[in-house]
C-alpha cells in the first residue's frame, strides 16, 4: 500500500548548506494498517509525511509508491490526506464551510457530498456545531473538524502528524476513539508520526523506530493489543511490554547513530 525504498532526502538550509535528513529509509505499510513512526525531535518524521503527500520536493534517491502510484499521482487522485498537529482551519469560514472547502476546490458540490459532510460530522459528534465559527471551538473540536475535512476527499491513506500532542488526556482519548472508528468504517491505511511512545503503541499496529539525522528505520515493533483500544489498555501487560520494547529500540537506534 505504501512503500518507501532506500529514500535519501536532503534540503538546503538558510545558509545554503545541505541538510541530510533521510538516509536509505525503507519501510512498507500494508492495507488498512495503522503504522506508527517514532523518533527523536527533528529526526525527519514530518518530512516522511510530506514526501508521502507530495508536499516536499522529490527525494535525491529511492522510490515512494502510494497505492501503486507515485505521490504526485496519489495527490492528484486525492488518495492521501494529512492531519497536522495544529488544526489548519480557516478562521473566516465556519465549521461547515471549512469542511466544504475540498469539495469546492474539486468543483464537486452535490447532494451526495453535502450529505457526506453531515454524516461525517455526526460520527465525529460535531453535527450540532456545524454553523459555529472556528474560534468558538475548543482545540479538540477543531482537531475533529480538521479530521472530518481530511476525510471529505475520500482518501484511502491518512497521514497523522502528532495529532494528539496538543490535546489533554480526555480529548486525546476522544480523538483516539474517533480515529479508530473512521479507520474501520472508511478502511483507511494510516501512518501516525509522533514522539510519544505511549500514543504510538496505543494507536498503532506496528511502530517504526528512527534514529538521529540522517535517519533510517532502526527497528520495527509490532503491537498485539486488540481493538478498539482505550486509555485503560495502558495498564495491560501487553502495552507495558510493547512500551519497554519500543523504548529500548529507540535507545539502541539513537546510540547506533551517535556511534556513526
Amino acid at each position: 500500500m505504501i512503500d518507501f525504498k532506500n529514500i535519501s532526502f536532503s534540503y538546503k538550509n538558510n545558509k545554503g548548506q545541505d541538510t541530510h535528513v533521510l538516509n536509505s529509509l525503507t519501510f512498507s505499510v500494508g492495507k488498512k494498517e495503522i503504522f506508527g513512526i517514532v523518533g527523536p525531535s527533528g529526526c525527519g518524521k514530518t518530512t516522511i509525511l510530506k514526501l508521502a503527500s507530495d508536499l516536499a520536493p522529490n527525494p535525491q534517491s529511492g522510490s515512494i509508491f502510494i497505492n501503486g502510484v507515485r505521490p504526485e499521482i496519489a495527490r492528484k487522485k486525492k488518495q492521501v490526506a494529512i492531519l497536522t498537529q495544529k488544526p489548519v482551519l480557516l478562521p473566516w469560514r465556519n465549521v461547515y464551510d471549512n469542511i466544504l472547502l475540498p469539495v469546492q476546490i474539486a468543483g464537486a458540490i452535490n447532494k451526495k457530498n453535502l450529505k457526506r459532510i453531515d454524516s461525517l460530522l455526526d460520527i465525529a459528534g460535531m453535527l450540532e456545531y456545524k454553523k459555529y465559527q472556528i474560534h468558538e471551538l475548543s482545540g479538540g473540536m477543531q482537531q475533529r473538524v480538521s479530521l472530518v475535512r481530511c476525510l471529505m476527499t475520500k482518501p484511502v491513506i491518512l497521514l497523522l502528524d502528532e495529532p494528539f500532542s496538543a490535546l489533554d488526556e480526555i480529548l486525546k482519548e476522544e480523538l483516539l476513539e474517533l480515529l479508530q472508528v473512521f479507520s474501520l468504517e472508511l478502511s483507511l491505511t494510516i501512518i501516525h508520526v509522533s514522539h510519544s511512545l505511549e500514543d504510538s503503541i496505543l494507536f498503532c499496529d506496528k511502530v517504526a523506530v528512527l534514529g538521529q539525522r540522517p535517519t533510517s528505520v532502526s527497528n520495527i515493533v509490532s503491537v498485539s493489543l486488540g481493538r478498539p483500544r482505550k486509555f485503560s489498555n495502558r495498564l495491560e501487560k501487553v502495552f507495558l511490554h510493547s512500551l519497554t520494547e519500543l523504548r529500548s529500540a529507540l535507545k539502541v537506534g539513537v546510540k547506533k547513530h551517535s556511534l556513526k
Partner: peptide, 22 residues
C-alpha cells in the same frame, strides 16, 4: 501560514482558487 498553503496544495487547488479562498 505555509501549512495553509500546503493544505490547499494537498486538495489540488489552482493558483486562482488559492488566491480567492486563502
Amino acid at each position: 501560514d505555509p501549512e495553509r498553503v500546503d493544505l490547499f496544495k494537498s486538495f489540488g487547488a489552482s493558483t486562482f482558487q488559492t488566491f480567492i479562498w486563502l
